[in-house]
């Protein structure tokens, strides 16, 4: 789900209203969707409306107050509107669990949940995330107690260097909430937007399966020296 900053829940500041009560967004939207409306408004009115809309500087470029609800806590920061959600979380909120690895929505290391849905925090502006419940990796373990998935990630070794792990945990947490007993294909599909250069995917899949009470399986065969000596 992609939140619309024009939603009622969004605080003022993320959206600017024109004097007529018509918001810039809805005004422009009506222009785009209905040529009839535009024609009816008359060319002069349109140009006036446009001039007014363009004259408005919604926010920035200087720092503006931005309020984020992170792991159940409301925090207000002063941020330039171009600051991404990931930069705000890591730099301002001190939550460095989500990682910056590609900074353009390809690797998933920055994944956080926005109202329960995984999003790439590197490719969303912090001001866009206002009004949503943001959950980061730091909000998954309750009182220091690992979730079943986190525990399985450790026990099944669903990680190597660990840089992708926070993102992997976030997408799989969202998956397991929606689908408590995913098949192997469903787990693979869920992590398809998350890259792991160490190649831990087989064990990550095993962890997700184990966390949902299913057989994780292992393909390791250990051959003792006696056995292969006679082979």
């Amino acid at each position: 789900m992609k939140r619309n900053p024009g939603d009622a829940a969004a605080p003022s500041g993320s959206e600017v209203f024109l004097a007529s009560g018509l918001s810039r967004r809805t005004f422009l939207k009506s222009l785009g969707t209905s040529a009839v409306t535009a024609a009816a408004m008359g060319a002069e009115q349109v140009s006036q409306g446009l001039a007014q809309a363009n004259a408005e500087r919604p926010v920035g470029p200087g720092a503006v107050p931005v309020t984020l609800t992170v792991n159940g806590e409301k925090k207000t920061f002063r941020l330039e509107p171009r600051v991404t959600l990931l930069e705000a979380l890591r730099g301002e909120a001190g939550l460095t669990g989500a990682k910056e690895a590609c900074d353009r929505a390809t690797c998933g290391a920055c994944t956080v949940l926005l109202d329960g849905t995984p999003v790439y925090a590197c490719s969303m502006l912090a001001i866009e995330a206002q009004g949503a419940e943001i959950t980061t990796i730091e909000g998954i373990a309750k009182n220091g107690e690992l979730s079943a998935l986190q525990k399985a990630m450790v026990d099944k070794d669903g990680l190597q260097c660990g840089y992708c792990s926070p993102g992997m945990v976030m997408v799989l947490t969202a998956l397991l909430r929606k689908n408590p007993r995913p098949t192997e294909a469903e787990v693979r599909h869920a992590i398809a937007g998350n890259l792991c250069r160490c190649g831990s995917y087989p064990r990550i899949v095993a962890a997700a399966r184990a966390a949902s009470g299913q057989s994780a399986g292992t393909k390791l065969t250990f051959i003792s020296s006696h056995d292969h000596a006679v082979a």
């Binding site: 669990g97 373990a141 986190q150 990630m153 070794d157 660990g162 926070p166």
Partner: peptide, 12 residues
């Protein structure tokens, strides 16, 4: 299981 596993899966 790796000793730094819990730190890595919690973002710590």
């Amino acid at each position: 299981p790796r000793v730094d596993g819990p730190a890595k899966v919690t973002g710590r």
